[in-house]
Simulated assay, not measured.
Amino acid sequence: MSTDFQQAREALGVRLRELRLSCPDGRLTGTALACKLGWPNSKVSKLELGKQTATSEDLQQWAIACGQAASYDELQGRLSGFESHIRSWRRQLTSGHKPVQDAHNDAQAKSKVLRAWESSWVVGVLQTPDYARAVLTRSVELHRSPRDIEAAVRARIKRQELLYSGSRQYHVILWEPVLRSLVCSPSVLASQLDRLSGVVGMDTVELGIVPLASPLKIPPGLGFWIYDDRQVVTETWHAELWLDDAEQVALHLRVWSTLREAAVYGPDAHNLISSARRSLG
């Protein structure tokens, strides 16, 4: 969890404590507030110490219980401010995976030059429906989120319309292990590799592959997207990070450019994809 995110969460906790201690009818103890809300005492403590992220409902209930309902808008503004950058999967997936896919579709539609590095799986905009279904199914199982897999697959595949608009350029780099990683069945991976072969040579997509044997100046690290040199989107197991700080964007651009030095393109990239395809039998 980022230092900025944690500091913002702790600041929100301090504000919650101020509201508890300044109730119009007299200050409330943490125990009294927990009792009033029907919460365990530990929840009040964790929220005030910044050890747990409040939900919008938590903030509304807190403000009302402290007799200061009008403070809810301020509290929600604080929460929205830091969650716009750190979007936990637990909260994002409350309504399923389709809204997450829609958010990415919107972000890519608003961009003209898109750069991607991926070391784990084929990027969404180049996935086949079956490959997308396999990856999203694993995500649903991991996060125990609502099972809206088919709606999420349709939303992700809809993103591919952007490839054919002619108004944006995709510069995608994949690590060779992506071509061989069985995050799906062998037959689904075979079809996915056929799809990638068809992408090589598209005028709107520059697809590079970093060979496993290629010397790397830096470790592969996490995958990420860079939109118009203004925003970075990356993810961890617990959250998505949407970064628009100039230094962070510049850092990811350097990482992307460094990894690009090790990539191969055109016929060489096609040969790597074909080799992985033949290995499936």
Rank of each mutant, 00 (worst) to 15 (best):
Q92E: 10
Y170Q: 07
S56Y: 03
T53L: 02
S56L: 12
R15F: 10
P211R: 05
D25F: 09
S22T: 15
I64T: 11
A269W: 06
F82H: 10
C66L: 06
W39L: 08
C184H: 00
R9P: 14
I173F: 00
W256P: 13
D106C: 04
D203G: 07
P24E: 04
T236H: 11
R133V: 08
H238S: 15
S45W: 09
L243I: 15
Q52S: 13
Y170P: 13
H270L: 15
L253F: 02
G223C: 09
L189W: 05
L162I: 11
E141W: 02
L207G: 11
Q127H: 05
T204G: 09
R260S: 15
P40M: 00
W117Q: 04
S197R: 15
H104F: 12
G166D: 00
P99W: 03
G208H: 07
Q92T: 13
P99V: 03
G201M: 12
R78E: 07
A263H: 02
T29C: 07
I226K: 08
L142P: 04
V122D: 04
L253S: 10
G77Y: 01
T234Q: 04
Q52D: 05
G208T: 12
V135Y: 04
S214P: 05
E141M: 02
H270N: 12
H171Y: 13
V232K: 04
H104P: 00
Q248R: 10
G166C: 12
W39I: 11
L280R: 05
C35T: 15
S120I: 12
S274R: 12
R156A: 05
S214Q: 12
V122P: 07
G223S: 04
K43L: 11
H85C: 09
S88V: 12
A262C: 08
Q169F: 04
V44I: 15
L253Y: 00
L79Y: 06
L19I: 14
W225G: 11
S71N: 02
W175L: 13
P215R: 02
A246G: 06
L259D: 02
R90L: 06
G67A: 08
L49P: 12
A132R: 10
I226M: 11
V122T: 13
R159Y: 07
G96E: 01
R154W: 00
S95K: 08
A276V: 07
G208R: 09
L79C: 08
L212W: 10
T204A: 15
W89S: 06
R168E: 02
R159M: 05
G266H: 09
Q160G: 10
Q108F: 14
L259I: 11
